[in-house]
Design a protein around this nucleic acid. Structure first.
Lengths: 119, 119
DNA sequence: TAAGTGTACTAATATAAATAATACACTTAA
DNA sequence: TTAAGTGTATTATTTATATTAGTACACTTA
């Protein structure tokens, strides 16, 4: 399910994060399905449990999984995941727009540019 | 003109960058005015010239100064600086909006949110 | 051509990130 | 209630990266 590429310069925990993000987005893991336990996966990959723990913490931060202490980690529902992504993306946009307005860009200019975008 | 605070945990070059950004934005240094030479300022602060070099490279990257090889570093015109800031800010916004649309947020939703913003 | 300027390359050092070792705390089922 | 599963927290060690320094080079002008 997960493999570590030691020729890859990226840290192990990052490879693990990416692998699971892909699996979850592509439907290889279904909502509420249990993730491999921290210890099991660590043993399988012959690495320290804390490295998996770090990967899972990151996946949780990004909304891909949720944790129940003492029970395990589970795949988050796709709707919830999507709505979190939308929310944080929208927040970033509004923050940047605020900054842009400090530089003298008007709301109208921004809206005009959006309407010119392809897509 | 510049002081290093060794109690400050930030790197020296970063303190130098910030100091000059403030000076330029507040008008303490005027457009096309010559910056202290890399060697002079380094000697004055008793640090290595490369540290100042790094600070100046960063200031140039951010559009605050421009360099003429063999002659020196000079303060960038405020209009140019502002237009660079605007440009990069606008680019970031459009990039994020593209990402948002991948998540299913519509252009209209974004425009609506902008219009709701205070300011 | 000399004395000023910035630049590039390498090495040393300091700082931060990644990983591991270990002990703790929660949950469930026998 | 306890054993075996789960995640968590703390600390130490290792590794990678960022910062700074040493030094030599190249451009500009008077």
């Amino acid at each position: 399910m997960v493999v570590i590429d030691y020729k890859d310069t990226r840290p192990i925990y990052e490879q693990v994060v990416e692998r699971f993000k892909t699996l979850i987005l592509k439907g290889g893991l279904l909502p509420d399905e249990q993730m491999p336990s921290v210890r099991n996966l660590a043993m399988e990959l012959s690495i320290n449990p804390n490295t998996i723990q770090k990967a899972y913490a990151e996946l949780e931060r990004q909304g891909f999984i949720y944790t129940i202490k003492g029970r395990g980690n589970f795949v988050a529902g796709t709707e919830k995941l999507l709505s979190e992504k939308k929310k944080s993306c929208m927040e970033k946009i509004l923050e940047l727009v605020g900054e842009a307005m400090e530089y003298g860009i008007t709301r109208e200019e921004i809206i005009f540019s959006l309407q010119q975008m392809e897509g």
